[in-house]
Design a protein around this nucleic acid. Structure first.
Lengths: 226, 226
DNA sequence: TTGTCAACTGTCAGAGGCTGACAATAATCT
DNA sequence: AGATTATTGTCAGCCTCTGACAGTTGACAA
């Protein structure tokens, strides 16, 4: 008969151990990264406190970078889901913004047992580590593509013929990147600060994009929805 | 007395040999990358036809990625210089576009002895290789930052307070990325094709950004130049 | 021409990221 | 309990990249 402990989550003993090992590796890595830096940390150093071999680390995370992006990954998924859940009537920029706001809110608690304070430190580390920044850029580009596809779908546009979805997304993420950098450079490292900076900057491109971009093209003749 | 051969460029024998080695390594690498793929190519394979040790390769190129971006690097520099040379009276988007056009034109000949056809193949390889795409994204982000700074300087704006330069650049490079992807996916791999796609797409965001973005803000009150 | 100096290179040794193969161990199912 | 399957550790190895040291070669002056 299958033993089922009172521990919240489903699955057997094996599943439980796996989740524990993963979380332990994640914590160990983040702790080391934020104290000694990303490149100065070796896989052996990460695996040692967890009492696990280097080989096992690579069975949980495909690379050293991946563990650094585990939490951002989760947050990103939340954001994308939140965006897809926005009503189709909302202009894309509005929907993006509200999805972002919703993500900030479900973001106060821990993700995978990682405290918000640690997220923040990791974000700053990513911003200041070239190798991680490169990965972040690549991931951002992939996310931009997915968002552009989703917008094209919502608005009934052809992504190959109409650059506007991509441009809108580029503008949005451009602001996000900019705010990220400003926040990273500034003194106030709180999540509230990041949130405030983001809102402020998004405010400033609202009128130009929200009102102009979700209507058919103003200039040359190209097919658009509605 | 210093021997000065009739070979075009300046410098002594040492300089000449260095340039030769660099070019040879570059060619060897690009040839192998485009035939077997980036990851399947090892440093030893690159160095062998040049009859040079692996160690020497790393004295010319800091990493395997760097050699892949040697030509894009040169092109990028040309573009940035061309942009800075644009008259300050031009709206930023117009200046970006003309700089791009100028870059396309000085681009027909070989760069560092690499034929345009090989550039094209390399661009496509970069687009289809995750590791290279990551580097490209990072480099693009750095370029965006430099362009935004330059625009802020031209227009007398404060980059930390006004997101518009960054957004404008994001829109521009967003279109460039999009065209790059469309071109890479399409059948026509000629430079002319890339050029045409780019022009077409830039046309479509012209009215919205050229006329709206170089004026002081429409909505909330923030300081801007003229 | 010759000797000195500086630059360039090869060899060697090694760290660190990452992977495949295989055997040992531990959980699950019957 | 025994068979099955998943997870792990060990080992061996490839590849990127770096520091150290010694050998070679071009540059320059006496």
């Amino acid at each position: 008969m299958t033993i089922r402990h009172v521990s919240g989550e489903p699955g057997g003993l094996r599943e439980l151990k796996k989740r524990r090992t993963r979380t332990a590796l994640l914590h160990s890595a983040l702790e080391l990264f934020t104290t000694q830096g990303f490149e100065a940390t070796t896989i052996d150093q990460i695996a040692e406190p967890v009492e696990v071999s280097q080989r096992t680390f690579f069975r949980y995370f495909a690379s050293k970078e991946e563990v650094a992006f585990a939490v951002p990954d989760t947050v990103e998924s939340h954001f994308f889901d939140a965006f897809r859940a926005r009503p189709p009537a909302e202009p894309p920029m509005t929907a993006l913004r509200r999805a972002m706001r919703a993500t900030w809110e479900t973001f106060g608690e821990s993700v995978e047992g990682v405290s918000p304070a640690l997220h923040m430190r990791m974000y700053q580390l990513i911003e200041s580590t070239p190798a991680l920044l490169a990965v972040l850029m690549c991931r951002s580009a992939a996310m931009e593509e997915r968002l552009a596809e989703e917008i094209a779908r919502r608005e009934g546009l052809d992504l190959d013929a109409d650059p506007r979805p991509r441009v809108l997304v580029a503008a949005f993420t451009g602001v996000m990147r900019a705010t990220g950098r400003i926040w990273g450079a500034g003194g106030d490292t709180s999540a509230a600060s990041l949130r405030r900076i983001t809102e402020e900057h998004l405010d400033r491109l609202g009128p130009a994009l929200v009102t102009a971009w979700d209507r058919p093209e103003p200039g040359a003749g190209a097919a658009g929805a509605t």
